[in-house]
Amino acid sequence: MFYNLVTYIMKETKLGDFEETILLLVGILDKEAYAFKIAEEFEAQTDRAVSIGAVHSTLNRLGDKGFLTSEMGASTAERGGRRKRIYTITASGQRALQESRDFKISLWDQFPSLAGGNLNFNI
């Protein structure tokens, strides 16, 4: 019992940048959210290459944090008849996304030059 308590406390509940993106992609893909598709979508959206392993590892970590649940889905022929693991966002996952967004907005709101209206990005 004590051991569980400790691990519960120790568990990281903050979202990293990559994790946030993946979490959002899971939300976007909805019923098609499995590792391969998520990696594809990531590459399409960000134009950055990523390995399935890296995505899978992050999904796994998000699952550990309680932001995602998963279950085995249907199998298709192009997978050699193998089933895929479909991920869905949990309530705490949604909350974490919301918090992250709110946090960033509040940061933006505090940005003085932006508040003054003449933000200069040196473009």
Binding site: E40, R82, R83
Partner: peptide
């Protein structure tokens, strides 16, 4: 094994 092999095979075919 199952899910990973599946994912990788899809990627491979792609």
């Amino acid at each position: 094994a199952e899910e990973v092999l599946g994912d990788l095979e899809e990627k491979f075919k792609d």
